[in-house]
Amino acid sequence: MTKKPFSKDILHLENIDEVIDGICEKLREDVYKRFRRYGGVIGISGGIDSSVTLAIATKAFGSDKLLGIMLPETDSSPESEELARELANKFGVKSIVENISGALEGFGCYRRRDEAVASVIPEYNPVTDKMKVVIPEEFVNKNLPPVHYVSVTFKDGTEKKVRLPMKEYLQIVAASNFKQRCRANMLYYHAEALNYAVLGTPNKHEVQQGFFVKYGDGAADVMPIGNLFKTQVYQIARHLGVPEAIINRTPTTDTYSAEQTQEEFFYQMPFDKMDLLWYGWENDYSPEEVAPVMEMTPDEVSKIFKNFARKQKTTDYLRTPPLHDYNIMEGSLV
């Protein structure tokens, strides 16, 4: 099959109803027939991905076969819960709130994270100051894997940013990941109590670039939008009537106490640009074909392609389920 010439609208879904119907059909096949579950639970955050997952699932199963669960904690933006509630109401899906702050306190999530932050920024006071982990934008053009920095905004509004040594970086990430894993536990509690499946919400970039927590938000039975680019997720959101306030909201991590966009934390470029570049890379378009469309130089495109390849390779561990093909009995049995 000949490839379409690379263009800015190459990812636009012309046959959007067919695409949605295809996802719905597969969802019913997987959840009802393969897993024999009666419906689905979805963690709803007021973000675009969980909202589109809920909108598609409503079309697939009907609103009475779904439960939307809001899972706020101490650092969550109050706006997340409000928008999630608005979404559930709009689609007629029953929703409940499960606050996981107590569980996180019990695990020592906040204490362990703050201890690591304070070891690099001793003046950090978690009661009054806000923190986040960032990757400086310049790393996207460096041809080096990204290095993370912790940024603290003090109560007087001043900011301090320090590069994280390995030990502290790992401790902050490990502690913060309690959040996604607690949420997964709660989702599976409700799913099992109802004999439902957990409908995961990661999009294609999150899955392929490893922007999820293994056994956290990566824990799910199906991921209906796991093969959709972000601009396609937005296109479906508009088509299915996801509230405008959700569509217009900048995607955030909603993980650290300071506000932080996903672009700032992980992707380092806007979604529309990343969608096209990823598509180009994944489908073997050359940097020379992609560069003029993106108004970039072939060298810039080439560096980003290398970054994509590196990200996909280094996050393979996250996508790999437990390995159990240890055939120790092979050859030893008569």
Binding site: P136, N143, L144, P145, P146, V147, H148, R163, L164, P165, M166, Y169, K306, A309, R310, K313, T314
Partner: peptide, 28 residues
């Protein structure tokens, strides 16, 4: 890095190693 031998963790470990072994601090 291009060959996929080293990733972010590798780079952080290397920075630590250069500091402890050769007393060289890598600035940003």
């Amino acid at each position: 890095f291009d060959e996929g031998i080293f990733d972010s963790m590798g780079l952080l470990g290397l920075i630590n190693f250069l500091e402890s072994e050769f007393n060289v601090v890598a600035e940003d």
